[in-house]
Simulated scan of single mutants.
Amino acid sequence: MSRRHHFHTDHLGHSVSATVQTGHRLVVEVLVDGKETGHATTKDDAVTVAVELPTDPPTPVTVRAVAGPGEPGCTLIVAADGEPRAMEPRPY
Results as ranks from 00 to 15, higher is better:
S15M: 11
S15Q: 13
S15W: 13
V16D: 02
V16K: 02
V16I: 15
S17K: 13
S17P: 01
S17Y: 11
A18F: 02
A18E: 04
A18N: 01
A18I: 02
T19E: 14
T19R: 12
V20A: 01
Q21M: 09
Q21F: 00
Q21H: 07
Q21T: 14
Q21R: 15
G23N: 10
G23W: 08
H24F: 09
H24C: 09
H24T: 13
H24A: 13
R25H: 13
R25N: 14
R25K: 12
L26S: 11
L26F: 11
L26E: 12
V27I: 15
V28A: 07
V28S: 00
E29W: 00
E29F: 00
V30C: 11
V30Y: 08
V30K: 07
L31H: 08
L31A: 09
L31G: 01
L31W: 11
V32N: 12
V32F: 10
D33G: 02
D33C: 05
D33E: 05
G34S: 04
G34T: 01
G34P: 03
K35L: 04
K35F: 03
K35C: 01
E36N: 01
E36W: 01
E36L: 08
T37G: 04
T37F: 02
T37A: 06
T37N: 04
G38E: 03
G38V: 04
H39C: 03
H39I: 00
A40L: 02
T41Y: 00
T42S: 10
K43Q: 15
K43I: 09
K43S: 15
D44C: 05
D44H: 14
D44M: 11
D44Q: 15
D45E: 10
D45L: 12
D45P: 01
D45A: 14
D45T: 11
A46Q: 13
A46E: 14
V47C: 04
T48H: 06
T48K: 02
V49Y: 06
A50N: 10
V51T: 10
L53M: 10
L53W: 05
L53N: 11
P54R: 07
P54W: 10
T55E: 11
D56S: 14
D56F: 06
D56W: 03
D56M: 05
D56V: 04
P57H: 06
P57I: 02
P58C: 07
T59K: 06
T59G: 00
P60F: 08
P60G: 05
P60Q: 07
P60H: 08
P60Y: 07
V61W: 03
T62A: 15
R64N: 05
R64D: 02
A65H: 01
A65Y: 06
V66C: 04
V66I: 06
A67W: 03
A67L: 07
A67P: 01
G68D: 10
G68V: 12
P69S: 05
P69F: 07
P69A: 07
G70C: 00
E71S: 07
P72S: 14
G73S: 15
C74G: 02
C74K: 03
C74M: 03
T75C: 06
T75K: 14
T75A: 14
L76P: 00
I77F: 08
I77S: 08
I77K: 07
V78I: 14
V78M: 08
A80N: 06
D81S: 09
D81K: 09
G82T: 13
E83V: 15
E83Y: 08
P84D: 10
P84V: 10
R85A: 12
R85H: 13
A86T: 12
A86R: 15
M87W: 12
P89H: 05
R90I: 12
R90D: 13
